[in-house]
Amino acid sequence: MNFARHRRALGLGLLLAAFMFALALRYLVGSSGFGEPGEGIARYRLDAGLAATAIGVSLAIAGLFLQVLLRNPLASPFVLGLSSGASFGYMLALYLASQFGIAAGSFFGLSGPSLFAVGGSLVALALVWQLGSRRGAVDPLGLVLAGVIIGSMAAAGTTALQSLVPAGLRGDFVGWMMGRIPEAPPQGLLLIVSAIAAAATGLGIAIGPALDASSLSDDEARSVGVRLTTVRITLFVVSGVLAAGTVALAGPIAFVGLVAPHAARLMVGPRHATLVLGSALAGAAMLLAADAIRQVVDVGGGRLPVGVLTALVGGPVFLILLRRAPILHHGGSS
C-alpha cells in the first residue's frame, strides 16, 4: 500500500531528524554551557556523542529483538535478569577488592568491576537460557519466568554484598547502577560496541521479513517457512551481546530498550525491516538527548546520572504512549 509506504518513509525521516538534532545538541552542550566547544573539549564531546549513539542503538535493537522473541511488548534488555546479573558482578568485584584486594585491576581499558558486570550479565543470560528453553526449543514464557527468578536472586545477592563492603564503596555502586555515558571511553571498547551496534542493525534489517512472519503463531510461522528456532537463538544471542556491550561502556541504563521500539513502532508501523532502523534512530536520539539534558541540570550535589533521566523522562513518555496507542498486541473482539 502506498499509504503505508509513505507513512514509513515519513516516520523514518522524522526519527532521523530527531537523531541529528540530538547529536548536534549533545555536541553543543557541555558542563561549561551551550556553545561551540573549544579545541580540547570537542574531542570529548564527540566521543561521548558516539558512545551515547552506540549505546542507544544497542539498547533499542536489543529491546526490539527481545520483544519479538518473547512476544511481549514489555520486554527489554533487562527483563531477562541481565541488569541484575551485571549489578551483582559489579558488587562482587567491589567486595573482592575491599576484602581481598583482588579484582581491582583493569583490562582493555575496563575496570575490574565493569568486567565483572559484563561477566555477571552473561552468566545470568546463560542461566536464563538454560532454564527457559526446552529440548533446544525456546519457550518465550519460560524465558521471562526464568529471567524474573534469576534477576531476583541476583538482586538479593547484590544487597547482601552491599552490607559487607565499606560504606564509601556503596556510593560508587549506586552511581554506576544508574548508568553514565563516559566522556573518555576506552577507544577499543567504544569501537567494538559501535561495530556490534551497526552489525546488529544491519542484521535486523536483513531478517526483517523473518521477524514479520515470526509474528504468526509458532506453528503457522513454521508453515510459511520461517526457521523459528534459528531466528530465536539469533535474537537471544545478539540481544545478549548488545546489552552486555552497553553494560561494559555505561552500566545498566533503563527504559531506552523498552521505550525506543515502541516510539519507533508508532512512527513507522509494524514492519520489522523499517522498525529496526527506526528503533535504532529513536534509541540513539533518546540517549543523546538525555545525556545533553544531564549536562545542564545541576541538582546541587552534582549532575544527575543519565539513567535517572531516561527513567524520569522515558517513564512518563511510555505511560502516555501506553494510554494513547494500542501497544499491547493481543486479543481481538468477538
Binding site: M1, A4, V68, R71, P209, A210, D212, A213, S215, L216, S217, D219, E220, R222, S223, V224, G225, V226, R265, G269, P270, R271, H272, P326, H329, H330
Partner: peptide, 29 residues
Amino acid sequence: ARRVAYVAQRPLLSARFSVRETIELGRYA
C-alpha cells in the same frame, strides 16, 4: 511453503499488521 499451508485454531499475531500485511506473510518464503 508452496505445498502445504497450516491454519491454527486460534490464529495469533503478535504484531499490529493490517489484514493485507497479514495475508502477505503467506508469501514469506
